[in-house]
Computed example of a mutant assay.
Amino acid sequence: MLRMFSTVNGQIEQIDKPESGSWLALSDPTDVELTTVSQETGVDLADLRAPLDDEERSRVDVEDDYTMIIVDIPTVGERAGRNWYETIPLSIIVTKTLIITVCMQDTPVLHPFMEGTIRGFNTFMRSRFILQILYRNATMYLRYLRIIDGETDKLELRLRHSMQNREILMLLELSKTLVYFNTSLKSNEIVMEKLTTLSRIKQYPEDEDLLDDVITENKQAIEMANIYSGVLANMTDAFSSVVSNNLSNVMRIFTIISITLSIPTLIFSMYGMNFQQGMLGMPFTDSRWGFLVIIVLAIALSLAVLWFLTRSRLFK
């Protein structure tokens, strides 16, 4: 999808044709759209396609007529009925008169710019626009990290009484997501450091505070990702032991029940055997109350074994 925007009288408006100072937003673009933008702006088609590869690394490329900045942005999808967090590349291409963004998805990172809800946003101010995108990107990372932390707390409550591996696998998925986030944030940090020394991107005094905020937010996101990764790693190890311990408790109960029930089973099995007349018979077989006595004896022995096993150190 190709959408074009321009700031008119202080308001962001969608336009039909690119003009000087406008913004071209490509999200999940078609080959026709990429070819059209390449012909109209002079940007190499390969550079426009670069962020469509989800393995593309974050970097800054300086060409003769434009500068391409690629950063990793967070995104959320659905997998097996659950939210799945990952990172994808976003390209910001700055020409002499235009700014172009290319992404394989319609990312929420750019939605506030399209809706005109970002304070001080102007498509003509390309240097500030880049910093605003990077700031918005860092805040999105922080938002998703807090969501992941909340999901971790919910999993912790469920794991206290769980005997299945499902929760452990969910923790491993969140841990893998944090690794991706941490790697992407560190790559973005390198891009930001390069931008501060890049003469092609002009640094205006009024944007210094915004640049500091971008760097601060990104560092905070890196620290949060590191902390949550450490917490998740410890939780995974701890709750793996909890699941094993819960399973051992269940097996202990079943073992006690099995041993207790084996006593009356053994007694009644012996009384079910056939003995030839004249041989030594089973006790109480000639008694009127023999059947009742055997039942009482089996129950008494079972209770005695149950009492012994529940107090034995082997089953605690």
Score class of each variant (00 low, 15 high):
T30W: 03
I93Q: 02
D286F: 09
R158T: 15
V214K: 05
Y228N: 12
S248R: 13
V305I: 10
V43W: 00
L169F: 10
T265L: 11
P29N: 02
P283G: 06
L211V: 14
Q11F: 01
E13R: 14
E78H: 02
E115S: 11
A304C: 11
L131Q: 07
N226E: 13
D212S: 15
Y66Q: 03
T260V: 14
G77D: 00
L210K: 08
R79V: 07
S22D: 04
L174C: 01
S175D: 07
G150K: 15
T95K: 02
F181S: 04
V242I: 15
D213G: 10
L145A: 03
M4R: 07
F113T: 11
T197Y: 00
L195I: 13
V242G: 00
T101E: 08
E189K: 10
E40H: 11
L232V: 00
D61G: 03
E40C: 07
D149F: 10
L178D: 03
M4H: 04
M163Q: 14
A138T: 09
M125Q: 14
S199G: 01
Y271H: 04
I259C: 09
L309H: 01
H161D: 05
S22T: 12
A25M: 06
Y141A: 01
W23D: 01
N226S: 13
L48W: 04
L34Q: 03
V293H: 09
Q220M: 05
M140G: 06
I147D: 03
L301R: 06
V8N: 04
D31N: 09
T95D: 00
L172H: 12
F284G: 08
L292G: 13
N246M: 09
F268C: 10
L306E: 01
Y204D: 07
R252H: 08
